[in-house]
Design a protein around this nucleic acid. Structure first.
Lengths: 207, 207
DNA sequence: ACATCGATACCGACCGGTTGGTATCATTGC
DNA sequence: GCAATGATACCAACCGGTCGGTATCGATGT
């Protein structure tokens, strides 16, 4: 019973509940009552803050993105001076947080867009937007690292940043299929090796 | 009105319908009636062939896998003598079929496991099994290519095969977010470059 | 100091429609 | 005649969303 769960305002509690329940059950399989029960609130509160279930999903995507921005913004690797160190630090950090129950390290945006892209345009747009925020963020370091270590490379910074996101999303899918994060960590190891090779940095062991 | 849709036996028509509808709407959001309507049948037929919606999902996963095995088994690159050529041929083939409407090139297994892994164990197992079939298939060529071109490499064949699958699954997620296959093809280009680098083969253009 | 009042926050019963699933019946092929 | 196949009718549970109501609180007038 920490303060965040019992004292935070109702809207935030609903968003936090949505975050966890939707990542565990998917968007369509999650009922409004599920979210209310998890948040310790009732439908009255839910529809006081959100016009519809879809609107909640969009707000939850924003909420998730804010959480991610904070998480990566405050991570230790952010303070490294070299942009390639920051990029590899990001990848290692992503690998390190692949731990615990699956619903807690997987991505709300990937989960929702996978099932809602064709039927809920607003959700699709939201997921695209907030995935784009992360990709653009990573692309900054890629761009800087490229300028220093691989200025003539044929691939684009944004493209490589999107690729890292794709690898992570795919890693989540395989982790869900296998029932644990090990396979996902293996995927991130391959991603790290690729990035190292792109920047001509010899592969270094990290465990 | 081709033969496959109107003349195939009802069970197959239901499976084909499930394949398309679930990839478009997701598993939970797809009703039994949706599938029946698409197949041109009624609930009576549905529950004659499947005990439950979940059982249909498992059968649809098997059906999808069979289709994939046939598709990749008969693809031209399969006849290449060199195992690395076959592996790169596979990757190019995966890139080439990233075309048309999203529900038609995305993966039923990835779509279903993403939302059902925690709530429908039978579906999770089925998706794991049939993803494993494809991974094992790719791993054969990886293994052979490794023996020839990179016998001392530190990565495992199965691991690299799983990685290619992850990249594809992630590419599907990004394609759904962006609303088209372009970004997915970009991801596969990165994957190809990685594989080429792993096997010390100079990057070659393919378009 | 205190009564009044509107706004915000939240509750929980309720509604029409949809869901997965069942029971029953008509048709067909052997 | 009978088993397999598929259509039709139906059900109880559940769904997203609505609605009338209550509790709380700051602002206002006196």
């Amino acid at each position: 019973m920490n303060a965040a769960q019992t004292k935070a305002d109702a809207r935030t509690r609903l968003l936090d509940a949505a975050l966890h329940v939707i990542r565990a059950q998917g968007y369509a399989a999650t009922s409004v009552d599920d979210i209310c029960r998890t948040a310790g609130l009732t439908k009255g509160a839910f529809f006081h803050y959100f016009k519809s279930k879809e609107e909640l999903a969009v707000a939850a995507a924003a909420h998730f993105s804010e959480m991610a921005v904070r998480l990566f913004g405050e991570a230790p690797y952010r303070t490294l001076a070299d942009p390639l160190d920051r990029l590899l630090g990001y990848i290692d950090f992503r690998s390190a947080i692949l731990d615990g129950p699956i619903p807690e390290f997987t991505c709300l945006l990937g989960t929702m867009v996978q099932e809602a892209y064709d039927t809920h345009p607003a959700i699709q747009r939201a997921c695209d937007t907030y995935l784009g925020v992360n990709i653009a963020d990573v692309a900054k370091d890629v761009e800087a690292a490229k300028a220093v270590y691989a200025p003539t490379a044929e691939w684009g910074a944004e493209s490589l940043a999107a690729y890292t996101q794709a690898v992570l999303q795919g890693a989540f899918v395989l982790a869900k299929a296998k029932g644990g994060p090990e396979i996902a960590r293996e995927c991130v190891t391959h991603l790290r090796r690729y990035v190292e090779q792109l920047f001509d940095r010899p592969t270094s062991k990290r465990e």
